[in-house]
């Protein structure tokens, strides 16, 4: 009796597993398909795409569309390619990610290790920033940037993204530091370390996993942002996403789909790179602090 049951259990197990793998495979194909379309079409001459057969592998392999998208495609009125906008994005993303991460870490440190009256309310208010939709602040933010003389500059965009990102980074670091042993802070205090010395020497070196989470999250969000870039950037501070839109939306001439595909991949590559380099810390960091011990 028991042997028979075991037998069926194994057989259903096998059937189920095959089914599960089939379904998973289907999902993989479904998710990979857009990437496949983008990659194959970005290395084809334009005639192969307009002649139909978007799904076919390229008959003639060419990197011409990539080169054109990067350095000579018509963006708006100038034939500059995406490269200057790529650097605009970098100049905006790097400081914005760095500043918002450090500020989040400082906030988390204060909210957990230097507790004060009503600190949970302060934390709640900071957290509130995570839930405010972008559209609501567009006009007030434009006014503020104007008043500060930052309208249309990269630093204006950095400020906007820092303000928006601090809510998230504070949340990450607060939860991470909440389970960081307070005795360590006390030991450092007795050893004579001050507020910032404890932060730099004791806390930050132990914050690797959560810093990675914060950096990936912030980098992806800020790099991919379109609304703030389109709203607040000047002609010489437009980020990659806005430029890509201008490239694809150009209303004159032939639609160079292969160049558009190459440009879109170029715009997506940096976030992909960050995931590949730091991704394995991501899940670990997200889980950290959720379970004690």
């Amino acid at each position: 009796m028991s042997i028979a049951t075991q037998d069926t259990a194994i057989r259903t197990g096998r059937v189920m597993r095959t089914l599960i793998y089939l379904v998973l495979l289907l999902f993989v194909l479904f998710y990979m398909l857009p990437l496949y379309v983008m990659v194959v079409n970005s290395v084809k001459p334009l005639e192969e795409i307009t002649g139909g057969g978007m799904m076919n592998l390229p008959q003639v392999f060419t990197l011409e569309p990539w080169a054109k998208a990067w350095s000579s495609a018509q963006i708006g009125v100038e034939p500059t390619g995406l490269s200057p906008y790529f650097w605009n994005s970098i100049k905006m993303v790097v400081p914005a990610v760095a500043i918002s991460t450090v500020l989040g870490a400082l906030n988390g440190y204060v909210l957990t290790k230097w507790r004060f009256k009503y600190d949970t309310i302060v934390f709640g208010l900071i957290l509130f920033a995570c839930f405010i939709p972008f559209q609501i602040v567009l006009i007030p933010m434009a006014k503020m940037l104007g008043l500060m003389g930052l309208a249309g500059t990269t630093w204006g965009l950095v400020l906007v993204h820092v303000v928006y990102g601090v809510g998230f980074t504070t949340l990450y670091f607060r939860n991470y530091y909440a389970v960081f042993p307070t005795e360590l802070i006390r030991a450092a205090q007795i050893d004579g370390a001050g507020f910032f010395q404890i932060f730099w020497r004791i806390l930050l070196p132990s914050s690797g996993p959560i810093a990675v989470v914060s950096i990936i999250w912030q980098f992806t969000n800020i790099w991919n942002d379109f609304l703030f870039g389109a709203s607040f950037a000047g002609a010489d501070s437009q980020p990659m996403t806005v430029a890509l839109n201008n490239l694809v939306q150009a209303s004159h001439g032939v639609k160079e789909y292969n160049v558009h595909f190459a440009g879109a991949i170029l715009a997506a590559l940096p976030t992909l790179l960050v995931y590949i380099v730091a991704g394995r810390y991501f899940v670990r960091g997200l889980m950290a602090g959720s379970v004690k011990g």
Partner: peptide, 8 residues
């Protein structure tokens, strides 16, 4: 300290 509180 009870937990030794060594800087990791």
């Amino acid at each position: 300290f009870q937990s030794y509180a060594l800087y990791p």
